[in-house]
Amino acid sequence: MSVLVVVECAEGEVKKSSLEVATYGAKVAAMLGTTATAVAVGEAKAENLAKLGEQGITKVLYDAEPRLKDFVNNAYTKLIATAAGQEGAKVIILANSNIGAAVGSRLSVRLKASLATNVVELPKIDGSNFMVRRGAFSGKAFAEVSLGGDCKIIAVKKNSLEAQHDAGKTAEVVAFVAQLTDADFADAPQQVVMQDQAGGILLPEADRVVSGGRGMKGPENWHLIEDLAKALHAATACSKPVSDVDWRPHHEHVGQTGITVSPNLYIACGISGAIQHLAGVNSSKVIVVINKDPEAPFFKAADYGIVGDVFDVLPKLTAAVKALG
């Protein structure tokens, strides 16, 4: 009975969030006195999969079927269910991503498993009692959830724990054939369109985010946000009204009705801090607010703040980061 970890890959690399998931899985395996096996999805490369040993994975199952490069819900579900069957896995760990959570919900029905998404901590296991802590109420609270049944599936929120790196340890990469058929790829995408990401950093995966609100006055001023983001190796984001008026694309909109981010550092520039915006960012580790209004509600949710004009402050910050070298 091993723990099965689903690792997402893109362009040959294991995604950073999946390194966290692998670490989580290895820790759960240690709690249960067993080992953690990974199954790779997406465009993987065997040599990078072997490096999952650093996160505590002992074995990686890899099906080289080329159509698995893009997300296909049915095919991924069957692949993982087959791997779980082969490994006798009773605990399955995925990333709480648009892929992981979507597959997790199908798997839970297929495997008659209980499911918790948006999980933010390692489980508490006491005999048959299996508890996880998950985010609820759009980041405004947590719920301690007890997972029933024989099989459990956990989708781990990004940045909930740090990926472990035991240099030199390798995992055995094992060819795996899930016997996928054309029917399993019936809901395959016709086309996949990737966005141009600022500096190649995906917002949902980013460790640092620089975000702009209406206080930025217009899209022509966004170079100030982009310059700081570039210097910090950060992704860029925005508030809802900014994407509503098309100053920025919709996929940058964070908040209750946008995407939720939990980076180590979130820098809010000219954003008032409405409750719906905070819902998408308040699990960030460190929040910095730059706003000319000392009464802006965002300061109440911030760790560091500068009361000042973004047009004056942002260039200073960028210069200071560059000076760090």
């Binding site: 839970s108 498993a113 209980s114 499911l115 918790a116 508890m131 802590r133 609820a136 980041g139 405004k140 609270a141 947590f142 719920a143 301690e144 959830v145 007890s146 997972l147 029933g148 049944g149 308040n282 699990s283 910095v288 607010v289 300061f299 109440k300 949710a301 911030a302 760790d303 560091y304 703040g305 500068i306 009361v307 000042g308 004009d309 004056d312 402050v313 200073k316 910050l317 210069a319 200071a320 980061v321 000076a323 760090l324």
Partner: peptide, 30 residues
């Protein structure tokens, strides 16, 4: 149901914001 909520909790309160003078904004980076 297969899962039950045993308890809810609120996130820990923030320590309070540390303000840095706009004139000296670079200090934030340090």
């Amino acid at each position: 149901a297969r899962t039950t909520v045993a308890e809810f909790a609120l996130p820990p309160k923030k320590q309070g914001v540390k303000l840095i003078d706009a004139e000296n904004a670079g200090e934030l980076i340090h």
